[in-house]
C-alpha cells in the first residue's frame, strides 16, 4: 500500500493545522481575557455553586451577540469554541488523506467519527 500519509507530508500539514488552531484559540482567549479583566472589577464570581445555564454564553448565538457588545467573556468562549473545533478539523482533514489513497473503508470510518461528534452537538442541547 502506498503510504501517502508519510510521503506527501500530510502529517506535517495536520501538525501545522493543530499548531495554528491552538495558537489562534489562545490569542482569542488572551484578547478576551484582557477585556474581561479590564472591565470586570470586584470580587471573584461564585464558583462554589454551579449555575449552569443561568449564566450567559453557552450557545453559539449567545457568544456571537456577546462579541458584538465586546464582552470579554464572550470572546474567551469563542476562543474555547475554536479550541474544541481544532481536533474535529483534524478528523475532517484526514478524509483528504484517505481519499488520496482511495481507501473507501477509512473515508467511511472517518465520517462515522464526524457523525458521532455532530450527534453529541445536537444531543448536548438541554431539552
Amino acid at each position: 500500500m502506498k503510504n501517502y500519509w508519510q510521503d506527501k507530508n500530510i502529517e506535517v500539514a495536520i501538525g501545522n493545522l493543530l499548531r495554528w488552531g491552538v495558537i489562534l484559540s489562545s490569542l482569542i482567549v488572551f484578547t478576551g481575557g484582557i477585556i474581561y479583566l479590564a472591565n470586570t472589577g470586584g470580587t471573584v464570581p461564585d464558583y462554589k455553586t454551579f449555575h449552569g445555564l443561568l449564566l450567559p454564553y453557552h450557545s453559539f448565538s449567545e457568544v456571537l451577540s456577546g462579541i458584538k457588545d465586546l464582552k470579554g467573556e464572550a470572546i474567551i468562549q469563542l476562543g474555547v469554541i475554536f479550541l474544541i473545533a481544532t481536533p474535529v478539523a483534524r478528523v475532517a482533514f484526514s478524509i483528504i488523506g484517505f481519499a488520496w489513497e482511495k481507501d473507501i473503508l477509512y473515508i467511511f470510518l472517518t465520517l462515522i467519527v464526524l457523525c458521532i461528534i455532530i450527534t453529541s452537538l445536537a444531543l448536548g442541547v438541554k431539552g
Binding site: 482567549v29 478576551g32 474581561y36 464570581p45 464558583y47 454551579f50 449555575h51 449552569g52 445555564l53 443561568l54 449564566l55 454564553y57 453557552h58 450557545s59 470579554g72 467573556e73 464572550a74 474567551i76 468562549q77 476562543g79 474555547v80 469554541i81 474544541i84 448536548g124 442541547v125 438541554k126
Partner: peptide, 11 residues
C-alpha cells in the same frame, strides 16, 4: 459547553 460547565473566567 451547552450545559454551562465551561466558564470563561476559569478557562
Amino acid at each position: 459547553f451547552q450545559r454551562g460547565y465551561i466558564d470563561p473566567g476559569l478557562c
